[in-house]
Write a protein that binds this DNA or RNA. Structure first.
Lengths: 242, 242
DNA sequence: GCAAAAGTGTTCTCAATACACCCATGA
DNA sequence: TCATGGGTGTATTGAGAACACTTTTGC
């Protein structure tokens, strides 16, 4: 069984990683006017989890997060932001790891290094939904996008981590040019506004939003987009390089 | 020699702590119109360092930071904020720890757990300067306040950590009621303004500053302060409880 | 009374808001 | 030509900046 081999191989890597330290990534995407998060379905369990991993002894924590992201999405040089460390004494990681290991290798459970208490560094990532090619890791059977509003049953304290990531995203929304990472190359003003409304969870005024965005001098107009609808064709925009 | 015993005792604590994870605290105080940072002078070295420590297996990271702060300042329930993790692969911790250990126990150097690579969680703390009773730890011979503008030679990447802490403090200045932690119980408007000017490193207009602070509805006037100077006596203010 | 610093009033500016209008598109 | 949604013009509001003025204190 390849599954067991993979787990054994992984458990043998103990010395490669910094012990009791993990990285969890909240990967945000935007699709169909919805803010989405990429989650992994744990094998044989009715539980989902954030993409995560460990920090190799020879790599920095940011590189570890980039590597984990690349492994789960196929994308390089993703926009990434460290936002908080989760390290309270009563983080319920052990119970979940036990559950996971029971499914795979009950006999290896007692002395494994993964059963220790963990401190986890939270990162959030912004990706172009359409470019992501989700890949589950060896502990999970699938990888799917979920709407922020309809998250499934989550393992560990991952619901809290997602919540904190979203709060951070909201606070830094204006200063971080979030759109340039979450939207495709070109987009309409309505899509950009919809993104902001979704993140902030509040309606914005169409005309004022447009004026404000244009006044920031970060967008340039491309051609018009003819959808076939019986109304004025909107311009497509793109973020300026510089 | 008590010094050596203390170090040996400490090195024997290996299993109590989460390995390769440390906490560094940037303790800000305000005195004589100056923003200050509390630093420790490493024994027999011309180097200063931030108060720091390790996370006990049974405590959360926030509690660890609180414990470290209490040990170095004598104060409980300090205002504390996690601001960033420092974990790049090339953090120059090993060289410094070697220097420190050479001074104390050159023969214990090779296999010690403190010589490993470390990931450090940065916290900043805001304290009432006048209430702090600085105490050095067993690796340091003294504990002193330094002006932000005149920091001494610092070990590790502690200069960078202090810099990042200050940047975070600046950004969150308006939303965090910084004054209520850095100033004594009562203070003049001029002192509050001076604090803001020091943190922001920019002059503010006296009259506009006063109006803005009063309009926030977080201050209450106490009695006037008669200094003996030949001018109008300023009111003393205090932060409202609520 | 005078200098010095505290406190208040008033205008100006600019950006965010709100409301209104014009433009393009396909049926 | 009409409904629909995109784009722009303009009045209003409010916070912050800039300037001026009044008040209090000890000499």
């Amino acid at each position: 069984m390849p599954l067991i081999n993979e787990l054994d191989d992984f458990l043998a890597l103990k010395d490669r990683f910094i012990p009791q330290l993990s990285v969890d990534c909240v990967i945000f995407g935007f699709h169909n006017q919805q803010l989405k998060v990429l989650l992994l379905k744990l094998k044989n369990l009715d539980l989902w989890a954030l993409p995560g991993g460990y920090v190799d002894q020879s790599e920095g924590i940011d590189e570890a997060a980039q590597r984990i992201l690349e492994e789960r999405t196929g994308l390089r040089d993703i926009y990434l932001e460290q936002f908080r460390v989760f390290g309270s004494a009563d983080r319920s990681t052990k119970e979940f790891i036990q559950k996971i290991m029971e499914v795979h290798r009950p006999e290896a459970m007692n002395d494994s290094w993964v059963l220790q208490r963990y401190v986890s560094i939270g990162y959030y990532a912004l990706v172009d939904f359409s470019k992501v090619n989700p890949k589950p890791d060896f502990l999970s059977e699938s990888s799917e996008w979920f709407e922020m509003k309809q998250l499934p049953k989550l393992a560990f304290d991952h619901r809290e981590i997602i919540q904190k990531a979203l709060e951070t995203l909201r606070i830094t929304l204006d200063s971080k040019l979030v759109g340039s990472n979450l939207l495709p190359e070109t987009f309409t003003m309505m899509e950009l506004q919809s993104l902001y409304e979704t993140i902030l969870e509040m309606p914005l005024r169409r005309n004022n939003f447009q004026r404000k965005m244009l006044s920031l001098d970060i967008l340039e107009r491309v051609e018009k987009l003819y959808t076939g609808a019986a109304n004025k064709a909107p311009y497509l925009y793109r973020f300026k390089k510089s």
